[in-house]
Amino acid sequence: MKQNEAQIKVKNLTVAYGDYVLLKNISFEVCRGDIFIIMGASGGGKSSLLRVLTGLMPAASGEVFIDGINFSSATPEEQKKIMRRCGILYQSGALFSSMTLADNIALPLQQYTNYSPALIKELVSLKLALVGLRGFEDFYPAEISGGMKKRAGLARALALDPEIVYFDEPSAGLDPISSKLLDDLIIDINQSLGTTIVVVTHELNSIFAIGGNSVFLDANTKSIAGCGNPKDLLKNPPNETVLKFLTRGEK
């Protein structure tokens, strides 16, 4: 499959909880193999948008296409098949606390493949090594730090060699070093695996470090207030809101 072809297409999407509309008629495209950033202030509906993109919540109206298939109108079975090719790193890591890291990562492999236990074990070790957690197989989530939990969550998201990985606030709650490590890891994963990556974040450092294409969600107008590379957006801000956000309101 070619690069630069849209893998995720969002068309006139409305995200709402009942009558409470968070985003109205937004459209954007994410190209295969790209890193795509969804930014916006806290409470702007970024996580909710991600819930719609990953099928945890139905769209109020509009469509999401993944690889040309209409994800929002697909049957639960079809959605599951599409989601098998997607990995998600939740805001908190969402590791199962009663399982070791190895069991956490092995779970999707056992669920979706019929690999032998030996291969699963090797794959688990590899994924942990990829996120810099070599040798942490037998640790429980409660025994590792927040940054390590996120990386372990990433290892789990990568378990099935996904084509798309969604990140919800990867650097939230991390120290600058850990958050830099995670940002680097996102870039490494993108470059070495060619994975399409969608990052939801409001951390300016991450936004500029990861780069790529982006959209800015404006909570007030419930729409996209700007799109393009964050650095270009900073140079030529389309409006006041984007400028304020990208400069911490200092300009």
């Binding site: 590899l126 090594a129 810099g132 957690l133 070599r134 040798g135 640790f139 490494d188 070495s192 695996l193």
Partner: peptide, 19 residues
């Protein structure tokens, strides 16, 4: 290239567990 990169990434360790 990406395969080589992946192996290198897996080999680079930033922290070893102490249990």
């Amino acid at each position: 290239d990406n395969l080589q990169k992946l192996v290198r990434l897996a080999l680079s360790v930033d922290r070893q567990p102490e249990k």
